[in-house]
Nucleic acid binder design. Structure first.
Length: 264
DNA sequence: TTCCATGTTCCGCA
DNA sequence: TTGCGGAACATGGA
C-alpha cells in the first residue's frame, strides 16, 4: 500500500493523533525493523522526546522531535500506523510502539517486516545517504526539472518513475496509474518519448499524486475512471472497456491497456 | 501446494 | 556509467 499518497495519509493520521505528545517509553517487538541505529540507541533518543512536526519525503515519514533529531519511518509494502489508548489492544504486527505520557500510543505496524524505523540528526544528510531524489510533489519539480531528470536516460519509463533516486514517492501502483492516464506504454523507452509526452506525464503525475494524496491513499475513494481499481486478472479498461494486460517490468507486475497505451 | 504481493538493497552481467 | 534481472528479506492470502 504505502506509496506517496498512502504515506501522506499516514502523515495526516499521525498529525491528528500524536503530534505534541511526549514519549514516555518505546516498545520494540522486533529488532529487524530498526535500521542504521541500534535499538538501544534509538529507544534512548526517543525517551522523553515530544513529536513536534512531521515531514513526508517520498515514501518516508520524518518526525521532528523537540531538539532530539528526527524519528524516521518507512512502511515497506505492508506497513501502517495505528493509534490508541487504554483499553484498546495493540493490533497484530505492531513492531514498534511509542507510548506517550498521557497513556495513548502510536504503533508502527509491519506485517512483513519490510518497514523501517530509524533516527537521524540531519534529514538532508540522511536523504543523501539513502540516495533519495526530490519528492515527486516538491515545488522544485516543475515541467523543466521533470524533463531534465529523465534527460539522457535509456531505460523504460516505468522503471524510471519508480526510481527513488530520480523522484521519490512513486511505486508500482501509482506508476501504472500515471502511465495509464498519460496514455504511455509502461515499457516505452525514455529516449523515445517526445517533449510533449514528457509534459503530459508530468501533468498526470501531479494530478494523480495530488488527488490520491488528498484522499490519503484510500484506493476506494479514487474515481472509477482510474486504472487503480481494475488492476487484476480479467480487469477491464475504464476508458475503452477492453481487456487490461499485464507485463513484467523491472521485476514488477505492470498493468496497462494495450489499446489506450499503444506500444511505441 | 504454489504463486503472488503496493518496497528496498545488493549482486552479477551487458 | 547506466540499467536490467534476479534474489533476498518475511508473511499471508488466493
Amino acid at each position: 500500500m504505502p506509496e506517496l499518497p498512502d504515506v501522506a495519509g499516514f502523515k495526516q493520521y499521525l498529525d491528528a493523533t500524536s503530534l505534541h505528545q511526549t514519549i514516555a517509553h518505546t516498545e520494540c517487538r522486533d529488532d529487524r525493523i530498526v535500521q542504521d541505529v541500534s535499538r538501544q540507541g534509538l529507544q534512548q533518543r526517543l525517551k522523553g522526546a515530544s513529536l513536534e512536526k512531521s515531514h513526508r519525503r517520498g515514501k518516508w515519514l520524518l518526525v521532528e522531535l523537540a531538539s532530539k533529531g528526527y524519528l524516521v519511518l518507512h512502511f515497506g509494502m505492508t506497513g501502517e500506523l495505528t493509534a490508541g489508548g487504554k483499553g484498546k489492544p495493540l493490533p497484530d504486527h505492531s513492531r514498534f510502539i511509542l507510548h506517550f505520557q498521557n497513556d495513548t500510543w502510536l504503533a508502527i505496524l509491519s506485517q512483513r517486516l519490510l518497514g523501517r524505523v530509524s533516527h537521524t540528526e540531519d534529514p538532508d544528510r540522511w536523504a543523501r545517504e539513502h540516495d533519495l531524489g526530490p519528492d515527486a510533489l516538491d515545488e522544485s519539480v516543475d515541467t523543466r526539472a521533470f524533463r531534465e531528470i529523465f534527460q539522457g536516460r535509456r531505460g523504460s519509463i516505468k522503471s524510471a518513475l519508480m526510481n527513488q533516486s530520480l523522484l521519490a514517492g512513486i511505486g508500482n501502483v501509482y506508476s501504472d496509474e500515471i502511465l495509464f492516464q498519460a496514455g504511455v506504454h509502461p515499457a516505452a523507452r525514455i529516449d523515445d518519448l517526445s517533449q510533449d509526452t514528457l509534459r503530459t506525464l508530468f501533468r498526470k503525475m501531479n494530478h494523480v499524486l495530488r488527488h490520491a494524496a488528498q484522499k490519503g491513499g484510500n484506493g476506494s475513494a479514487m474515481p472509477d475512471s482510474w486504472l487503480l481499481g481494475n488492476r487484476r486478472k480479467a480487469g477491464t479498461c475504464p476508458r475503452c472497456d477492453g481487456s487490461l494486460r499485464k507485463t513484467t517490468i523491472g521485476g514488477r507486475t505492470s498493468w496497462f491497456c494495450p489499446a489506450c497505451q499503444p506500444k511505441p
